[in-house]
């Protein structure tokens, strides 16, 4: 196989631009895990970090859950028989329970709590007409599902048990939109984003909803917090510098540092269980793929 000098030059140039986009990563190169370029959302590590579940826009009308094997880079539909769009996954620590959201009808979703051991679904039904909920996450202690749910005014963080009952409201009723809850590794705290002080900022509260504290204060949105495996840091998405970038801060809000620096979108950060890598969905050349960033150089 031959490659012209000009073609080689173009490839090298593109590679240089690509690598320059991951600002501040030193010698660490991002590893591109998928190559289909389709719009993706909400990656979640499973099986000790050896696999990733995410949702992908399979066609302009369907979003499907996929499972990616990091060793082989093979991706396959998680539920091939699904006839509707499924998205926003979360797993219990033992991965027995898989929680996700799916379209049931027009402008109507339900939350599925799938017991993969018993092959049984429990449904949380937010309403029979138009209904919304989102961003489920499972308590690391394995007994409750926390998610965002619109109420009469605004949108709050709520929880139910694994039978979709015994609901509790964790955030006070306000005019705010609260979303993207995520547990600390020990289950004692929940980080989330809220517009209660104007635009989306990151907050943290005790797992019972008490003692909410604001962690960020920036002019652009700050969303999708994710605790590091040691519970000491939070990765999140921010528009503070003009487009979607990944940042990391200490859990008290100090030490904010920018992880990505690219004119295209970086979003949906998740920590690898080893705590040394971040998984992102990044847009490069207009295509959305999963990337793994080594934080060793940070």
């Amino acid at each position: 196989m031959s490659c012209s000098k000009s073609a080689l030059s173009r490839i090298c140039g593109a590679l240089a631009i690509f690598l320059a986009g991951w600002g501040g990563l030193g010698a660490s190169e991002p590893t591109q895990l998928t190559h289909d370029g389709r719009l993706k959302r909400e990656p979640r590590f499973i099986k000790q970090g050896s696999e990733v579940v995410y949702s992908v826009v399979e066609s302009p009308i369907v979003m499907r859950l996929m499972r990616l094997d990091l060793a082989t880079r093979a991706a396959e539909p998680l539920y091939p028989q699904a006839a509707t769009s499924q998205f926003e996954s979360a797993f219990s620590p033992d991965e027995r329970y898989h929680v996700f959201v799916e379209f049931r009808a027009v402008t109507n979703v339900k939350m599925v709590i799938r017991d993969t051991r018993e092959n049984r679904d429990v449904i949380f039904d937010p309403g029979s007409d138009r209904a919304h909920l989102g961003s489920p996450t499972v308590d690391p202690r394995g007994n409750r599902v926390v998610f965002s749910l619109p109420r009469t005014v605004g949108q709050q963080i709520v929880s139910v048990d694994l039978q979709a009952g015994n609901g509790k409201v964790l955030t006070a009723r306000t005019d705010a939109v609260d979303d993207w809850p995520t547990f600390s590794p020990d289950g004692s705290q929940i980080a989330f984003a809220s517009s209660r002080d104007g635009d989306f900022e990151i907050y943290v509260m005790q797992a019972d909803g008490s003692n909410p504290r604001r962690l960020t204060e920036s002019p652009g949105l700050d969303i999708r917090p994710a605790f590091s495996p040691d519970g000491r840091q939070l990765a999140f998405t921010s528009m503070r510098d003009g487009n979607y970038e990944i940042y990391v801060m200490n859990v008290d809000g100090s030490g904010v540092r920018r992880i990505t620096n690219h004119p295209e979108r970086d979003d949906y950060a998740q920590w690898h269980p080893d705590g040394r890598q971040l998984l992102t969905i990044s847009e490069r050349d207009g295509a959305f793929d999963l990337y793994l960033l080594d934080l060793a150089g940070q």
């Binding site: 302009p60 009308i61 049931r104 402008t107 209904a131």
Partner: peptide, 13 residues
């Protein structure tokens, strides 16, 4: 909504 609808701008939810 589910197929065939997809993702229009009619975001009641």
């Amino acid at each position: 909504g589910p197929p065939p609808y997809g993702f229009g701008w009619d975001t009641h939810a």
